[in-house]
């Protein structure tokens, strides 16, 4: 049995085998001489499990993070859709209620989808703090887990404009979070495709909340010129939400400055260039952005 040959054979199909085994290249190379032949299969077994199990662990972490975001969004809409004592005194006006109920239902579907997927991979699905239900089948509504006013900073369930502004920021941030997680899923193409399908739905939600906000002026006729269904530069729905939009003004894609490309009349503007592409956010940044709303 020639250990180095085994590794070289694996390296032919997976050039990163040395790196995957926790970078312990030197340890591995010394195996041949220092480890008793009888113990080698056991040592190898645990080492490869550790290396290749990492992919599954990364995918699971990513799905758990996605589930955390979907819980967050579902609870936000569920609370809003149930705020108000009767049909004339609801937070969400009658004209928009069907849409926000659809959004809520789709967030719930995402929770169920992610729970089932995580469960099928042999892990216990994420639950938010103070959640008391079953991780796989429980009602995802968990008012003890969230304070969407961020300790009074947002008058979110009493003021429809505030509700819309936060909905917009949450959806846009959710999209950015999904973009940021994609690198973890590139080798798991089935799940990667499903996550793309899921994030597209968040794109629809963002555009819905933004379009409603575009026409909602608290009774003033006209429309909000700067509020579009897409993110213009790093323009936030309200100043306090600026951190959610940092980096969204990027106009360079794949090393190409989009503003150097031709539009219908002259070059594409920086505003249009930024709007045409959503931008990724990494997990620590997203975690930091939603932290003020968690209990």
């Amino acid at each position: 049995m020639n250990f180095n040959n085994i590794l070289q054979e694996i390296a032919k199909t997976d050039p990163e085998v040395y790196e995957k085994i926790s970078g312990r290249r030197d340890v591995l190379r010394s195996f041949g001489s220092k480890v008793a032949l009888a113990a080698l299969p056991i040592a190898l077994g645990s080492m490869f499990k550790k290396a290749y199990g990492k992919t599954t662990a990364t995918v699971l972490d990513t799905l758990q993070f996605a589930l955390q975001l979907e819980y967050f969004e579902f609870n936000y809409y569920h609370t809003a859709n149930n705020t108000g004592s009767n049909s004339t005194n609801t937070l969400v006006p009658a004209n928009d209620r069907v849409g926000f109920k659809l959004v809520e239902d789709q967030e719930r579907a995402h929770i169920n989808f992610l729970r089932t997927t995580i469960d099928s991979m042999g892990a216990v699905p994420f639950t938010p703090n103070n959640y008391s239900g079953n991780a796989l089948t429980g009602n995802p509504y968990s008012p003890a887990s969230y304070d969407f006013t961020a300790n009074g900073a947002y008058n979110v369930f009493a003021n429809y404009a505030s509700f819309l502004d936060l909905a917009i920021a949450f959806e846009d941030t959710g999209i950015r979070a999904y973009q940021g997680q994609l690198p973890n899923l590139l080798d798991s193409t089935d799940i990667m495709t499903e996550v793309l399908q899921l994030s597209a739905v968040e794109g629809r939600h963002a555009a819905f909340a933004r379009t409603v906000r575009r026409y909602y002026n608290g009774g003033t006729p006209g429309y909000n010129y700067g509020m579009k269904p897409w993110i213009t530069t790093n323009f936030p729905p309200t100043t306090a939400l600026q951190p959610n939009y940092l980096g969204e003004d990027n106009t360079i894609q794949k090393g190409v400055d989009i503003t150097s490309l031709t539009g219908y009349n002259g070059n594409i503007t920086a505003a249009n260039a930024s709007e045409a592409y959503d931008e990724a956010l990494d997990k620590p940044t997203v975690t930091q952005l939603i932290a003020p709303f968690l209990l």
Partner: peptide, 12 residues
């Protein structure tokens, strides 16, 4: 992926 979510915004 960055383009796909923008197309979804367009559709909505």
């Amino acid at each position: 992926a960055k383009m796909a979510t923008v197309q979804a915004r367009h559709s909505a």
